[in-house]
Write a protein that binds this DNA or RNA. Structure first.
Lengths: 425, 425
DNA sequence: CTGAAAGCGCTAACAA
DNA sequence: TTGTTAGCGCTTTCAG
């Protein structure tokens, strides 16, 4: 193993200088800089993250806690987060809470032991509070905590469900059932709310509502239940694609044709949803952007790729252009104040949201300065971040950020107008 | 943050003693032991894994590199590995190679920087060699590397495919198509071999063979292709459940009934396979045991759960009792020699295999002593592992272990006898 | 602008 | 049996 001292020796300089060069600190004579770089290259020097971590009291780890990685939506989220981490030189630690608040809590605690650079958590249904993270930034994804106690990135579930409902109603459906996720899970509640918002005011009132876990089996069970009703619905709005696929199969098993006899709509737009038959009409969650936003929150804006690959165009979720948020956009208000890194983000409450963040690092917008030690960022022009304004030292003045990303209705083949004779009862 | 020195101070002992107690080293006066424990508890002491890692030149991390966590099979594998890690006090680092050998290589390199306790890798199709891991144990899972250059845990893909083929043939099928995974992926090749072994000798010869990625889309595409043949097959044996589901949908879309018109068989038994309609007949890979075996190889036998939960009965893959291996079982031959931890395992070549490993830690069977620093294992009776026999110092004398776990045919509803008139051409 | 030195928190020798 | 001490590899004052 080659240590920094080896590099320093070979370059004929002190460890201090070697370290400064390797970390791209300014104020090193170009000649020295060059010698160190050469030595490092020749020796194949790789800094030891453990030692760096011990010193910096921070490891280059980002911990993700999900209920169950086996859920395709979480798998996609994990993948995006991991890819983002990798691009930044971080590693993603994966933990499954198995929907158990206690397990989740333990996972968080032991994650904290490793002093990660950040934590992303998709809380269980039963989670009421998270352990104190000290100075480790944490962001809640996909679901929301009661009280919004932590910075959160979600998609606009209510809007998504409303869009789907509206679409179904536009098709002529009047008896739309809603299969919603488990009570207490914010995403589930929101989707239900989005559905109720449109159907509740209807002359017929809203259709039957069933709730249960976001899984396949629940979809099957619920569909059977719904189909056994006196006047079965002509459309079922599911709370997840997994549920929807369960519903689909249950309907098919009953000999119903989808969408001719009954329409089914999912939520999430997982990869599989495009490949069922019929392909599932569903609501796309912008997983990529959720992941990007979460990472951005934890680690600051993603540095431009060193090698200079001009961002592989073709992200699949660039549909909705601007993010929709229930708060003012305060992108500019941050950078210049050099907000300190603490669990809460920048300053006042509300969501900060710079649209099109993925395109590239927004020019003037400086970072959250969460972790100023970019890996090998020899290149970086790091202008020695100004120490934070004193006011940033307040004990996390309850400034929970909430970013709510717009979803997108993906119209495929599983929905159609209701069969004749069911339009009006 | 509370350090060991704090604990020591409070207990009125030296750091050395405190350390010894915390790490369960023998030879500490009970009274001291008690005082330290109390102090630690009262202070809520948690050792700093970074510092431990720096010292021990080993972090409590296990890195998993998979092609794509979005693949349900890998997600299941990841979950099992993670759960196992968690139970041992380790953390699982997740990396996606995206089927790119270069990405995989980088992932491995940066993983190595963190000095993980072990590495599990599911190699890409293009992987020919892995970087040297130094003294970090590495195990290949699910797929095999050409040349079997590394210790490997796989399921017996050939046997599984043969079982499925035999089943189909027994049903009366004579024109069985095989949709196999990508060439170069060992699991794919093996499954194909298992199929050919039975159909090749048949009077009709084997049916059409198509190859492609293990994904849904490939299933659809291939099915269409197969169905367009002059004499389409009466059964399709897919290389994965994802493919099979694609096949299923393609068939359904063509108006074919499954299994009445055509039979479809999958491979893997992912959760979803039970929930399609018809439910998929498939070959179960013992994911749990694969994961358990891999972890066991890396970290040694899993210590009995401290709290004493008597192992939540009901593992879903306890079907085949003994593992089938192409080598002698040398379980006893290991422990007593106190094999050193190096990339290669115990001693001579061949697979070592102690059946029923999950039941509990086999009594007398001592560990590989890979990482003698069990977490807080105050309890452990660690008999100061004898220094390895000198012969263990040989430069990894090409002793690749290969464990091949039996699969199990899961008969569900997607296969039936061929339609009348197709039995004999 | 560069070098020397002090630790980060912990464990393992080595002494006592 | 217990205490003392020397680092693990790195970054960062602090002098020069």
């Amino acid at each position: 193993m080659v240590r920094l001292s080896d590099v320093a020796a070979r370059a004929g300089v002190s460890m201090g200088s070697a370290s400064r060069v390797v970390n791209g600190h300014p104020g090193v004579r170009p000649e020295i800089r060059e010698r160190v770089r050469t030595a490092a290259r020749e020796l194949g020097y790789r800094p030891d993250p453990l030692a760096q971590g011990l010193r910096a009291r921070r490891s280059r780890l980002v911990t993700l806690v999900v209920p169950d990685i086996t859920n395709p939506f979480f798998a996609e989220l994990a993948r995006e987060l991991e890819l983002d981490c990798a691009a930044r030189g971080y590693q993603l630690v994966l933990r499954n809470s198995m929907e158990s608040p206690a397990t989740e809590y333990d996972a968080l605690l032991s994650a904290l032991d490793h002093r990660p650079s950040g934590i992303v958590v998709v809380p269980t249904a039963g989670t009421t509070a998270l352990p104190a993270t000290g100075d480790v930034p944490l962001v809640v994804c996909d679901r929301r905590l009661p009280g919004g106690a932590a910075p959160t990135v979600v998609s606009d579930n209510r809007q998504g469900a409303s869009a789907a409902t509206a679409y179904l109603m536009g098709l002529g459906h009047r008896r739309i059932a809603c299969l919603a996720g488990p009570p207490g899970v914010h995403a589930a509640d929101e989707r239900l709310a989005g559905y109720l918002a449109l159907t509740g005011g209807t002359p017929e009132g809203h259709g039957p509502v069933v709730r249960g876990p976001f899984d396949y089996a629940t979809g099957q069970r619920a569909a059977r239940e719904l189909l056994d009703l006196d006047r079965p619905p002509t459309a079922i709005l599911a709370g997840s694609d997994q549920q929807a696929i369960g519903v689909l199969h249950a309907c098919l098993n009953r000999g119903l044709r989808v969408p001719d006899d009954i329409s089914v709509c999912g939520f999430d737009a997982i990869a599989l949803s495009a490949l069922t038959s019929p392909a599932l009409t569903t609501v796309r969650q912008p997983v990529r952007r959720i992941a990007a936003r979460a990472m951005e929150f934890l680690l600051g804006p993603r540095p431009p790729d060193p090698a200079g690959f001009p961002a592989p165009a073709g992200a699949d979720d660039c549909a909705g252009a601007g993010d929709s948020v229930g708060a003012r956009d305060s992108a500019g208000a941050r950078g210049s104040t050099g907000a300190r890194d603490s669990t809460g983000a920048a300053d006042s409450a509300g969501a900060s949201d710079s649209a099109g963040a993925r395109d590239s690092t927004v020019a003037g917008s400086s970072t959250r300065a969460a972790d100023p030690s970019a890996p090998h960022s020899d290149v970086r022009n790091a202008p020695a971040p100004h120490p934070a304004e004193p006011d940033a030292d307040l004990p996390h003045p309850a400034a929970p950020v909430l970013v709510s990303l717009p979803t997108e209705l993906v119209v495929r083949a599983s929905c159609a107008p209701p069969p004749e004779g069911t339009r009006t009862p």
